[in-house]
Design a protein around this nucleic acid. Sequence first.
RNA 1: GCGAAAGUGGCGGAACUGGUAGACGCGCUGGUUUUAGGUGCCAGUGGGGCGCUCCCCCGUGAGAGUUCGAGUCUCUCCUUUCGCACCA
Length: 859
Amino acid sequence: MDPIYKPEEIEPEAQAAWAGARAFAAREDAGGEKYYCLCMLPYPSGKLHMGHVRNYTIGDVISRYQRMRGRNVLQPMGWDAFGLPAENAAIANGVPPGRWTRDNIDYMRKQLKALGFGIDWSREVATCDPDYYRWNQWLFLKMLEKGLVYQKTGTVNWDPVDQTVLANEQVIDGRGWRTGAPVEKRAIPMYYMRITAYADELLAALDDLPGWPERVKTMQANWIGKSEGVRIAFPYALDNHDDKLWVFTTRADTLMGVTFVAIAAEHPLAQRLAEGRADIAAFVEKCRTGGATEAELATQEKEGVPTGFHVAHPLTGEPVEVWIGNYVLMGYGEGAVMGVPGHDERDFLFAHKYGLPIKQVVAAGDAAYDADNWQPWYSDKYGVVTVNSGKYDGLNYQQATDAIAADLAAAGCGEKRVQYRLRDWGISRQRYWGCPIPIIHCERCGEVPVPEDELPVVLPEDLVSDGSGNPLAKSDEFMHCECPRCGGAARRETDTMDTFVDSSWYYMRYTSPDADSMVDARAHYWLPVDQYIGGIEHAILHLLYSRFWTRVMRDLGLLTIDEPFTNLLTQGMVLNQIYFRRSDSGRITYYNPAEVDVRDGQAVLIADGEPVESGGLGAMSKSKNNGVDPQTLIDRYGADTVRLFTMFAAPPEQTLEWSEAGVEGAARFLKRLYRMVAEHVAQGQTAALLPDKLGTAARELRRQTHATIAKVGDDIGRRYTFKTAIAAIMELLNAVGRFEPKSEQDHAVVAEALDAAVLMLAPIVPHVCHRLWQALGHADAVIDVPWPDADAAALKRDELEIVVQVNGKLRGRIAVAASAGRGEVEAAALAEENVQRFVGGKPVRKVIVVPGKLVNVVV
RNA sequence: GCGAAAGUGGCGGAACUGGUAGACGCGCUGGUUUUAGGUGCCAGUGGGGCGCUCCCCCGUGAGAGUUCGAGUCUCUCCUUUCGCACCA
């Protein structure tokens, strides 16, 4: 065996062996319990980035470990191939998005293969293939039939110069990214999926997901945002017509404190009141500027305009003025809120700004109410009682809400209502590179669904966008069609679907990639996914949409499962240093950390030796130019080193800081491992291990080998703390390095330790372990060897070290026989010299004994 | 603004159920092999004190609390990161 580690020879050889054996092609009839390990599919942006490498390494380690545990493993891969970047690349380079995307896929597939991932490539799926997205269209039509898809107007960002809808990402500081024009909000018709019909189930089922991180479940629950409250009507008369303004509130108990009502600028009543009132119209118009994101709406200065129009308080009949407020969201509740400045902080600030009356209607004991300074208890629901509320005085939150709701119901002015923050899913995108929405617009028949037998509506792949509008609308071939109902000339819908539609069910298609239905019986075998792994940034949207989509398919009889993902692992981001320079004009240029050298704490650009500014750590991204190209690393160190570093640098759920020195360390470890095996093998055949014939040092090494097997199995199999697993194997190898074998049996113990280390490292660094396993004299390929079991007999210890504390502070250590009883341990602890010093003759009040670990003497 | 997390040596991190804080790795220091650099190997490495193989004090973002015992639990605060529905 060549004692020098040469990954450039070992890795292609191992990969060829796996490919030749079709080792990772999953079969439904292979026997063993199935294990579906899924990683979030990549967007084919060009090259793999370190986030991908991290994600897929975690998945591959789990897959290979489960395979060694005897599971029938499926680990597929595909491409989230529709999306904005392909269109941007098309605009920049004039290359059609289809070609750009497929070229990227080819390159990235090669990279995934070079990293040695055990992927079943026969099941590969790209969401831009008509064979895939036809089922998006098919399910869309089924949902339309069932009323789960409907049309209504939605708000988008509008670039008035390019006459184009902009994604939030394309709005920079309130302006269009290409034109710099101030962005406006615009209402357009869109298709929506009725996810709110499943709100209750999606919320309740979170309790049945023990394999999901708590924080993801909490975020989803908050996103769904179930709140129980009261829908209240404020009657009014306008244009000789009686009507009611509805609001939703969770604080009906404060209804007697209402001093105004605020409505959204898009509210129909606001539109009506703006007629003939220049000031109101101007405010409504002003609310149209700026972006449409919730963060933007929530952080902007709260502004409003009085309308002079009054509605009636539903219980007292007193007039209440209607205001239009930029902070009222049309998309939530009724698009109108009641203003209770006494007990809502936002209303309080609004009332102070515009001099509106503030009325205290809830009191907390004797606490004084100061209408000039907000105090947190003003908005407390509990521990307070109503005051200044007439017949409702003296009630707690629940009593007041019940009483007021009952009176409102009797007056026909309200009812209790469960409200969700979750909104229906708008899936229409005014973009080219996406799945066409299968609708035909006919002047006579209106919106007509494309008949099932005409699916898929194929997206032309050769169009090049010029940045303004949707190129589909300019393609006669795509646009012009016959109305399926009347046969007359008609035009196709040019909107495409949100790419979240594509990613809501790709993992189902992997189970039956060649089926001539959406999925077939194989889906019942593989689903649900046993382990899903992906970025924390998907904690809400993608995962919630997938859970919704699964239920829709279930209710259409396509699936029998409720939840798509049994266990979820959310991986942290990969960070790197950010360096930049600011030009005189304020323009920022970012420099890749590879081009920067840090000398005496000052970062300088290697090219010119001049300083650059440090922007601290940030997620690797194109915009900050702080990415590391995995390919360079693979070329330089080999795939195993890259895999080892990403698994060792940080626990999977935390952020990972890039460190070139850390990669060097990983490479060093593999070289050392390789040399240790080579040196051991050079000593020739080892004798069979006889556990009863070992000396003390050999027995201790063997104990450590088996303790490590137990720990690593738990760390990789249950805890997913890969770093501590690797650390334990490093410790074992350090112990092997210190151990000086003097007999045949000593060599046998070393052989056992090295065998175990290679098996345990095989999921993480599979190529080198493939080679080392052969070198250690085994005929089977390491991927086909079962995971080792710890020998309980080897773990036994004769003597234990016990820590002794006095009053909780560490004062000594004692060695006791493993069989020693409580009294014996206690006596030995009290006898310890340093312990005696600290007890110092004071009476011992209490002795706490934690068996096998610790004694605490309380004096 | 709302929602969710995270703060431990010079650095990444460990400490799983409230029980030895700092495993493992990086970096650094000293020694050693080598013609030299690199590599490799050996030793040391939280801060401070001391009579220096002993032992003591301090120490897990800040402050308080519960407990025999708190990095871990509770409360308040600070900072950072992620998500906020058209980036994927």
